[in-house]
Design a protein around this nucleic acid. Structure first.
Length: 760
DNA sequence: GACAGTGAAATTTTT
DNA sequence: TTTCACTGTC
């Protein structure tokens, strides 16, 4: 049973084995099926697959078939090397990637089913599930997501408002990505204020009080467990003889230490990644893990996969021109196996409305010629850019889906129900308790809630017992607390008590009618959440009740027991990417942030909003600029056949129209790598033809606003004209203000706000 | 404890 | 522009 075999400790203790568990068979007895899979590989891929000695770093460029390499390698290790599938651990970052890898490996080699192929976090969660007390957690711990973390920070340090709490929460999670304790001096590198360690400590105390873990703990606690606990480390090192890591460029410092601790002396370690696609440094990913792999694992072999099977060559040439600008990279050059194709198009458009229209128009025209909507993807830097496209597509009846906007598990009603479920599993879960105690309203006010929580902490009671003990408070509050206890008791009676994990003689067999879904459904009605949310459905026309039903349906696969409940919550917490609209097969245009496109590909890609300040965003350090450039690179390399880039001269930002310069990235690329359409700004190399001489009206404006002219603007204060241009027939001046800001204006339309006050 | 009104702020986010 | 946190009123 999966739940019982949490870490594979049992199997490793059952099987007596030498230092490496390879069966006593000649090395090359590959099955015909395996030979077939091997024959599909190019020489570098084959070398990467048939390597099983020193540490191995596979530098896999975009579209170079890395998933194929990893899955074939798993099949080869089992089929040709005689490796015990249970001794193979493969970790990825997303559930989706893990599922895909597991599925494809199993297709090639059925025994791969016994490999442990999962995300870093679910690996950590399972380890902790097995040794909760050693790690300082409660046996029934649940996992707090980022939102819960913010709540807990704001409660641990009441003087913080929610936004400040969110900032600290982010920093705390960053600290955990680096395995830093509240006492670590290195905390100052994240935030040098004196407050930070204190806030972190307060949060940590509160978190440990609940017995729960946050995402960071799922890596950091296993690291400590492995580093400090010989018994656990030995068991795990004996178990895993092969460790494979995908998307290694996005691993953080804690994950690196996890790998180091997990890899025993005889272990074979193989990591796959692309330093040019590292785009998550802002949340702790350390490209350094990759750049210094050869130092960390002496004797390592590096294999480059540079043959790209995805994109036509003009797309790859552009991608290379972009990423070549970066300094800290291992360096590789993709070669297009697919050969020639259409040159990327760079469109300069007047404003964002023209941008959406341009995209919609192209998509409609291609659709009329038989191209699927699903072939198209629109990429943007920030989620705030999607509404424009949505409005336009709705108007034109172009079907679309927005990837990663509002996630299923982040919906209010789902979080409500999940909090109830979490609280049923762990009665010390403060965050869950706060969420459910007075929702729907039972007349229990904030003051009463705080008193109960205080009682719980000061008398070491669970929150439900604290409710039972609680006497003070109004009559209304007492009634509400009574109701709450009643709901809890009703539900608790339905849930069989937890069995200690050692008692694994009878794995949680699923009996008919004993599903967790029945419990979840009952919970939704008993708690009053169904009434509460269906009432709001009627007002707002939302789907909350249906969502709650869907959540209950998802619980069908789990047995009605505390173990089943914890298992269910783990799976949900560690697979938050799930979207409500799972109609993946529908023929729709994809609207998606650049970050979310990692690992995806589309025949036709439009990267929008290529303007300075939007992409890259303002105020980036050199290092951050490199990451933004990699993000651009990731976007470009998603395109198989056609790539379009759009840049607007004007954009409404926060309701105000701003003039935009083209993205600096556009100035970095050779003009003959793209076909330029629309009206590029005059300073853009590659703009066609000479600029038309200004007409009298334009000349008058140019005379009125010479370079060096001093002016006053109603909103921005004093400034100086630093340059002027004629763009789309309009005079535009660039002004540097005394407050340090830079703005473009069309003086023709700014007569009211702009006042000329003299020369410099 | 619910609600309307005000003011300040505004990335990206695998788990 | 939109969103969300905070404030004051009923």
């Amino acid at each position: 049973m999966d739940f019982i075999d949490i870490t594979g400790i049992e199997s490793s203790s059952i099987i007596a084995k030498p230092s490496r568990l390879y069966y006593d068979v000649p090395v090359m007895t590959a099955s015909p099926a395996l030979d077939q899979h091997l024959s599909l590989l190019n020489p570098e891929q084959l070398e990467a697959v048939q390597h099983n000695s020193s540490p191995l770093l596979i530098l896999a460029g975009a579209g170079s078939g890395k998933t194929r390499v990893i899955t074939t390698k798993i099949a080869w290790l089992i089929g040709a090397q005689g490796a015990d599938p249970r001794s193979i651990l493969a970790v990825t970052f997303t559930k989706k990637a893990a599922n895909e890898m597991a599925g494809r490996a199993r297709q090639m080699e059925s025994r791969a089913e016994q490999c442990r192929i999962q995300t870093f976090h679910s690996f950590g969660a399972r380890l902790l599930r097995f040794y909760p007390e050693d790690a300082g957690l409660s046996a029934n711990f649940t996992v707090y997501d980022d939102d819960d973390t913010v709540t807990l920070v704001s409660k641990a340090v009441p003087k913080l408002n929610r936004q400040q709490a969110a900032r600290f929460a982010h920093k705390i999670s960053l600290a955990k990505d680096y395995c830093l304790d509240p006492d670590s001096p290195e905390l100052a590198e994240i935030d040098s204020t004196l407050d930070f360690p204190a806030v972190y400590r307060a949060y940590q105390n509160r978190l440990r009080g609940t017995g729960n873990a946050d995402f960071g703990d799922l890596i950091m606690l296993p690291v400590k467990l492995l580093e400090e606990n010989d018994r656990v480390r030995t068991a795990m090192q004996r178990r895993y003889e092969t460790i494979l890591v995908d998307e290694y460029q996005d691993s953080n410092a804690a994950q690196f230490r996890l790998l180091k601790a997990l890899a025993g002396p005889g272990a074979y370690i193989c990591v796959v990644g692309d330093d040019d696609q590292s785009i998550y440094h802002f949340r702790g990913a350390e490209i350094q893990n990759m750049l210094s792999f050869e130092d960390a694992f002496p004797g390592a072999l590096v294999i480059r996969l540079e043959r790209n099977y995805r994109s036509v060559s003009p797309v790859l040439s552009l991608a290379d021109a972009v990423v070549r600008r970066n300094q800290g990279r291992l360096g590789k050059t993709l070669r297009a196996e697919r050969g020639k194709g259409k040159k990327p198009v760079l469109a300069f458009l007047p404003d964002q409305d023209e941008e959406t229209a341009f995209c919609a128009e192209m998509i409609e025209q291609s659709h009329n010629k038989g191209v699927l909507y699903g072939d198209w993807a629109i990429l943007y830097r920030t989620n705030a850019q999607s509404p424009g496209f949505e409005t336009e597509f709705l108007r034109r009846k172009i079907p679309y889906r927005v990837v990663g906007s509002l996630k299923f598990y982040e919906r209010e009603e789902i979080k409500d129900a999940l909090s109830w479920l979490a609280f049923m599993a762990n009665r010390r879960d403060e965050v869950a308790f706060r969420r459910i105690i007075n929702k729907p309203a039972r007349g229990i006010g904030e003051v009463t809630v705080e008193k109960i929580i205080h009682t719980a902490y000061s008398s070491s009671l669970s929150f439900i017992d604290a409710c039972r003990e609680f006497t003070g408070g109004s009559k209304k509050a007492a009634g509400g607390i009574g109701k709450f206890i009643g709901i809890f008791d009703t539900l608790a009676a339905l849930l069989p008590p937890a069995k200690p994990p050692e008692d694994n003689g009878t794995p949680a067999v699923m009996e008919d009618g004993m599903r967790l879904s029945a419990f979840a459904e009952r919970l939704v009605t008993e708690s009053g959440l169904d009434e509460y949310h269906s009432a709001r459905d009627e007002i707002a026309g939302t789907q909350r009740l249906a969502n709650l039903q869907e959540l209950a349906n998802a619980a069908t696969l789990y047995p009605l027991s505390t173990e089943g409940l914890l298992d269910f919550l783990d799976h949900i917490e560690l697979d938050r990417g799930m979207e409500l609209d799972t109609s993946e097969n529908a023929d729709t245009v994809t609207l998606i942030t650049l970050h979310n496109t990692k690992g995806l590909e589309f025949p036709k890609v439009i990267i929008t909003g290529l303007e300075s300040g939007i992409f890259p965003r303002d105020g980036k350090s050199t290092e951050e600029l490199e990451e933004e450039r990699r993000l651009f690179y990731v976007g470009i390399t998603r395109a198989k056949d056609e790539l379009y880039l759009t840049a607007c001269a004007r954009r409404r930002i926060y309701g105000r129209t701003e003039f935009c310069d083209p993205s600096p990235f556009l100035y970095e690329i050779d003009r003959d790598l793209v076909s330029i359409i629309g009206n590029p700004p005059p300073d853009f190399a590659g703009s066609r033809g000479g600029t038309a001489p200004p007409d009298p009206e334009q000349q008058a404006l140019l005379n009125q606003w010479p370079k060096g002219a001093r002016l006053f603007h109603d909103d921005y204060g004093y400034g100086t004209v630093v340059s002027r241009s004629v763009n789309n027939g309009e005079v535009v001046i660039k002004v540097v203000f005394e407050n340090g800001g830079e703005k473009h204006f069309m003086p023709k339309y700014q007569e009211a706000a702009l006042l000329r006050i003299g020369d410099e």
